[in-house]
């Protein structure tokens, strides 16, 4: 990774100002236990955002992840719960990972071999998978997740909550993958100029297929650490996550047309978007402020995106 590019500065700045303002208003905000909870809150989105970053750098997008998470959670629930499948831990974990991988592959195949634009293929999958989830659960929710599954979400290993540990691992692997491996370089090369990449003989199809499969796999990982945090697996699990994750990635400075962006920026994006809601609660504005919550969120996202662009222009002018 090069030095933190100025591209991420806009997001970093908004994040910093927000945290500072809330901390001044309510000193409880940066207490260790709240920081810990915030990290747990970010973990599943950080995991999925890693996968999404590769997909978007390749110039593609995956908006099926919300429904995919819903189906994977339903699968985890029905396999694990004693009143349904009653399967052991490893069966469930590998089952979810494998199913995630398979669903990701389906997306990839649709995009790469059936040549359906990714936004459309995954939009279709978003709808289909939510329907399948409803059919799988047929109006019942899973309410008896066994303790060994719950442990994945609420357990602590070596003083670090499991979701955070897994997220750190995923982030470390992803950053290595992006900056130190040939595969990572190919992702950037293909994303910034697909035609040139083809001419140079890069395996465009394989790389894209792998990126979608990775996205599916990581959605599985995210579900494994997030669904067990809660006691109930419902059919609406993961609704809206697709837009949240995409927003995190683009706010983090990844170019939606591909080729540019870094995982560091994406992590800042995840942090900013996850913190906004908590920050608003800590400001203790009372119930009337709740009605403006979404507007504030929207304006902050817009500021981060615009700020990035304005600073980029200034840099360009200075450089010229």
């Amino acid at each position: 990774m090069k030095k933190l590019p100025a591209r991420e500065l806009g997001v970093g700045l908004v994040l910093f100002v927000l945290v500072l303002a809330v901390q001044l208003a309510n000193p409880a905000f940066l207490r260790p236990e709240n920081v810990r909870d915030l990290l747990i809150q970010c973990a599943p989105f950080a995991i999925m955002a890693c996968g999404m970053t590769f997909v978007i750098i390749l110039g593609e997008i995956d908006i099926s992840v919300g429904s995919m998470a819903g189906l994977l959670a339903a699968a985890l629930g029905t396999w694990a719960s004693p009143s349904h499948g009653g399967r052991p831990l490893l069966d469930c974990v590998f089952g979810v990972l494998f199913l995630g991988l398979a669903l990701g592959l389906v997306n990839g195949l649709l995009v790469v071999f059936a040549r359906v634009p990714s936004i459309v293929a995954t939009l279709g999958m978003l709808t289909v998978l939510r329907g399948v989830t409803e059919l799988v659960l047929h109006g019942e929710w899973v309410t008896d997740l066994p303790p060994f599954i719950r442990q994945l979400g609420i357990g602590v290993s070596g003083g670090v909550p499991n979701p955070v540990l897994v997220a750190l691992l995923v982030v470390a692997v992803s950053i290595t993958l992006a900056s130190l491996t040939p595969w990572g370089r190919r992702v950037y090369a293909i994303g910034s100029n697909p035609e040139a990449a083809k001419v140079r003989g890069l395996p465009v199809k394989q790389v894209k297929l792998a990126a979608f499969a990775l996205m599916g796999l990581l959605t599985g990982v995210a579900v494994l650490v997030s669904a067990p945090q809660l006691s109930v697996v419902e059919s609406g699990y993961g609704t809206g996550w697709e837009l949240f994750v995409v927003t995190c990635v683009v706010v983090g400075g990844v170019s939606i047309t591909g080729g540019r962006g870094s995982l560091w920026g994406v992590l800042l994006g995840v942090a900013l978007l996850s913190i906004i809601r908590t920050a608003l609660i800590f400001l203790r504005l009372g119930d009337q402020a709740s009605y403006w919550e979404r507007a504030i969120q929207g304006v902050l996202i817009l500021t981060a995106v615009l700020g990035d662009r304005v600073s980029a222009r200034r840099r360009a002018e200075v450089g010229a």
Partner: peptide
Amino acid sequence: EDQKLAFEVSRDLMKA
């Protein structure tokens, strides 16, 4: 209608 959100919001409320 998001259980994860309900969970996080409640946790934040207790701390705030």
